[in-house]
Amino acid sequence: MDVFMKGLSKAKEGVVAAAEKTKQGVAEAAGKTKEGVLYVGSKTKEGVVHGVATVAEKTKEQVTNVGGAVVTGVTAVAQKTVEGAGSIAAATGFVKKDQLGKNEEGAPQEGILEDMPVDPDNEAYEMPSEEGYQDYEPEA
């Protein structure tokens, strides 16, 4: 019985440690998101679009440190934060509304985080759909 109880105690310690790591990862992701939003706020009209992409990228980098179902929630929060940063930029006159959601080359930025393969159960990952990809044929 002692062996059984000791095993359960060790398992509990492992769960607590994993929860603490997840909590730490979420806190880091939130900190990076805040950094990115402050970065966007300090940019001029020309830099705002690039700044919004930076927020998304920093958040995406930190999301990889967070495991399990938390990833889905962090990704949703990050996307809403990026959308909010863009709205703030438009409201303050840093950028025109028609410039939001495009990178410096004018290509749409939507789907940055949505296409990231995420499995809350950590069982399997699927690649994003290939609808947006084109076949590449090298020139002879």
Rank of each mutant, 00 (worst) to 15 (best):
Q109A: 01
K96E: 06
Y125N: 09
T75W: 11
T81C: 07
T81Q: 01
G31Q: 11
F94E: 04
L113C: 06
K58T: 05
N65M: 05
K97S: 13
G41Y: 08
D135F: 10
A85K: 04
T33Q: 00
V77C: 10
Q109K: 10
L113R: 13
N122A: 04
K43H: 10
I88C: 04
N103H: 08
G68E: 09
A90V: 05
V26L: 11
G31N: 13
A19H: 06
K23I: 03
V49L: 09
K96M: 05
A90T: 15
A91I: 04
E13Q: 13
V37M: 13
A78C: 15
P108S: 09
V37W: 11
A76D: 02
A76F: 06
P120T: 10
A91P: 04
N65K: 10
G132H: 09
T64D: 03
G73R: 09
I112C: 10
S129G: 11
M5Y: 03
V66L: 09
L113N: 05
V63I: 07
A27W: 11
D2H: 07
V63T: 03
K80N: 02
T92Q: 01
E126C: 11
K80R: 07
Q99N: 10
K97W: 15
Y136V: 10
V55G: 02
V3P: 00
E110H: 03
L8R: 00
A140Y: 04
G67W: 15
Q99A: 11
V26R: 00
E130R: 06
G84D: 03
S42G: 11
V74Q: 00
K21G: 00
L113P: 07
L100A: 09
K96Y: 11
K23S: 04
M1D: 00
Y136K: 03
G41M: 12
V40A: 13
A69C: 11
G47W: 10
K97V: 03
P117Y: 05
M116Y: 02
G132C: 14
T81N: 02
V77G: 05
E83L: 07
G7M: 14
E61M: 09
E46W: 10
E131M: 02
E57V: 14
Q62T: 13
D121L: 08
V40N: 00
G31E: 03
A140H: 12
L8H: 00
G93Y: 09
G41I: 03
G36M: 14
V48K: 00
G25A: 15
E123P: 10
M127F: 11
T92I: 06
N122Y: 09
G86Q: 15
G7E: 01
V71W: 08
S87K: 07
V3Q: 07
A89N: 01
E57D: 13
G84I: 15
D119M: 07
K60V: 05
E139G: 06
T92F: 12
I88Y: 10
G14L: 10
A124L: 05
G86H: 15
P138E: 04
N65L: 07
M127N: 08
Y133N: 15
T59W: 05
T33Y: 03
L113F: 09
F4M: 04
K102Q: 00
A140L: 09
N122S: 05
V52Y: 15
D2P: 13
T59I: 02
A11E: 00
V66I: 12
S42I: 04
N65S: 09
D121H: 14
K10Q: 04
P120M: 10
A17I: 13
V118L: 12
D2F: 12
E57K: 08
K102C: 03
G51W: 13
Y39V: 09
A85T: 03
M1K: 00
M1G: 00
Q109L: 15
N122R: 14
V52R: 01
Q109P: 15
S42F: 09
D115V: 09
T92Y: 02
A90E: 01
A78W: 14
E139F: 14
P128E: 09
Y125W: 14
Q62R: 04
A107C: 09
S129N: 05
A140F: 13
T59R: 01
A11S: 08
S129F: 13
E126H: 13
G132F: 10
E28A: 10
A107G: 12
V37K: 00
A89D: 02
E123V: 08
L100H: 07
Y125C: 04
G106A: 07
G111Q: 12
E57W: 04
V16K: 10
M5I: 02
E28M: 09
Q24W: 04
V52G: 02
G67I: 12
H50S: 12
P138H: 05
N103V: 15
E28F: 08
Q99C: 14
E131H: 15
E126S: 05
A30Y: 15
K96Q: 12
G67Y: 04
V55A: 09
Y133R: 01
K34Y: 09
E83A: 12
M127G: 06
V52W: 12
A27H: 06
K58P: 00
P138L: 02
K45F: 07
G93F: 03
A78E: 01
K45C: 14
E35C: 13
G31F: 09
G41R: 09
A27N: 11
K43F: 06
E61L: 11
A53S: 04
V16F: 15
T64R: 05
A11N: 00
A53E: 06
F94D: 14
G67S: 07
P120F: 10
Q24M: 14
V48N: 00
K102G: 03
A69D: 01
F94S: 12
D115M: 07
T54V: 13
V74N: 00
E139L: 09
D2R: 03
G68A: 04
V66R: 06
T75A: 15
M1E: 00
V77F: 13
A17V: 10
G41N: 05
V49H: 14
D98R: 15
G51L: 10
Q24H: 12
K12D: 00
P138A: 13
A11P: 00
G51N: 05
H50W: 08
P117G: 10
V3K: 13
A27R: 15
T44E: 00
G86C: 12
L100P: 14
A78M: 11
A91F: 09
P128N: 08
E57A: 11
D135P: 04
G132I: 09
D119V: 08
K58R: 15
L113H: 15
E35D: 10
A124D: 09
P117D: 09
D98G: 08
M127H: 06
G51Y: 10
G106L: 04
F4L: 06
V118G: 12
K21I: 09
G132L: 10
V37F: 07
I112R: 06
Y39Q: 06
S9M: 12
E137M: 06
V40K: 01
V118R: 09
G93Q: 15
V37N: 00
K97D: 09
E35M: 14
Q24C: 01
E131V: 11
V77W: 14
Y125R: 05
A19Q: 01
T72Q: 08
K80D: 01
G93S: 04
E57H: 07
A17W: 08
A27D: 03
I112G: 13
P117M: 09
A91C: 09
D98L: 11
E57G: 08
Y125E: 05
